[in-house]
């Protein structure tokens, strides 16, 4: 019966079918999204009940402190994904961000060890970070190279420059600023934790509380529409890469304070940064990256490692679980995008 209807009224039923399919997909995406959030909540509940000392204030502040560097980097990545669009293959992505942090840390520690003060050294680190960001912007916006490839190339440039500068060695550093970051605390919360709190507040306000942030989403979500509305898409996209470089520089100073040195191997953080930025999308109804979502997922990743250790579960599991979660979230977002596409 319905088959004959389909045949006779092909055009109408196609539309209906598409609408039904899209509604189904949207419903499916919703289920999967809520499922993912439920999984997060279940893991946390398990830790709260079974991991000894998990909910102590001391432990929670430790986790915030441990998440500061990852958080600052993840904000940079999130901004790039917002401005460039969240398509995993063609959208905005900054693979160079962790290597850039390594380079900035090397510059900062090297200048400090050469006797330049905090002011100059911090300035230089920030300048280097933003310059690497500008290089990404040039490659992506100016030369039109796919961000995935452009930033991969810049990753190698930054990593190479770091190696050249440090000869792959540990460069020890100490300064008044680092002293404050290491041992300072205010209202019982350590300086490093404050750094994350303040930086988060600034990023959330800029991206979610200003018209600038709104335009950034417009540029990433619908570049054609944004262009038609008179927005300079290249400017906004370039801005995100430079901002990402700035975040790398800020993170580099936090990293040097935490390790009392610049050390090789910063690039290792890239997977966690990507995980944080991508995981954050499940906290948004439209599966777009948000600063708040990124903060939640950064804390989640930190709590995951912390909870496993408190439960005395091998740290080897953390990487596996992180990888599985990325896979899950990427699957969900492509699922959701499918529904948007057919809409």
């Amino acid at each position: 019966m319905s088959a004959t209807v389909l045949h006779t009224e092909a055009g109408v039923s196609d539309e209906k079918q598409a609408a039904a399919k899209s509604a189904g997909r949207r419903f499916g995406a919703l289920v999967v999204r809520l499922g993912a959030i439920a999984a997060f909540a279940a893991i946390m509940a398990y830790f709260v009940i079974f991991a000894p000392g998990f909910t102590s204030t001391f432990n929670l502040i430790n986790v915030v402190e441990q998440s500061a560097i990852l958080g600052v980097l993840a904000y940079g990545m999130t901004a790039v994904i917002i401005g460039g669009g969240s398509d995993v293959t063609e959208g905005g992505i900054d693979l160079s961000i962790a290597a850039n942090m390594g380079l900035c840390a090397a510059v900062y520690a090297t200048l400090l060890s050469m006797g330049y003060g905090d002011f100059l050294s911090v300035l230089a680190a920030i300048a280097v970070g933003m310059a690497v960001g500008a290089l990404n912007a040039l490659a992506v916006v100016g030369l039109g190279i796919l961000p995935l490839l452009a930033t991969l190339a810049v990753l190698n440039v930054a990593a190479g420059m770091e190696l050249t500068l440090t000869q792959n060695t540990v460069v020890g550093a100490s300064s008044p600023l680092l002293g404050v970051l290491v041992s300072g605390s205010f209202l019982g919360i350590s300086a490093l934790a404050w750094a994350l709190i303040v930086f988060s507040a600034i990023m959330i306000v800029i991206v979610h509380g200003t018209s600038f942030g709104l335009r950034l989403y417009a540029v990433g979500g619908h570049p054609e529409a944004a262009r038609a509305a008179g927005l300079s898409v290249p400017f906004y996209v370039s801005f995100t890469y430079v901002l990402s470089g700035f975040c790398a520089a800020v993170a580099s100073i936090l990293t040097v304070s935490r390790l009392s040195a610049s050390t090789p191997g910063s690039g290792e953080l890239l997977l966690s940064v990507l995980a944080a930025a991508l995981l954050g999308t499940v906290f948004s109804r439209r599966f777009v990256p948000t600063m708040g979502g990124t903060l939640l997922s950064v804390l989640f990743i930190g709590l995951l490692a912390n909870g496993f250790q408190l439960l005395n579960v091998s740290s080897y599991w953390v990487n596996g679980v992180q990888g599985a979660l990325i896979l899950l979230v990427v699957a969900i977002t492509s699922f959701a995008r499918g529904s948007e596409g057919s809409r």
């Binding site: 432990n59 402190e65 935490r258 050390t263 912390n306």
Partner: peptide, 10 residues
């Protein structure tokens, strides 16, 4: 290094 420091802290 980052991970070792976090692990020691916890």
């Amino acid at each position: 290094d980052q991970q070792q420091i976090a692990q020691l802290q916890t």
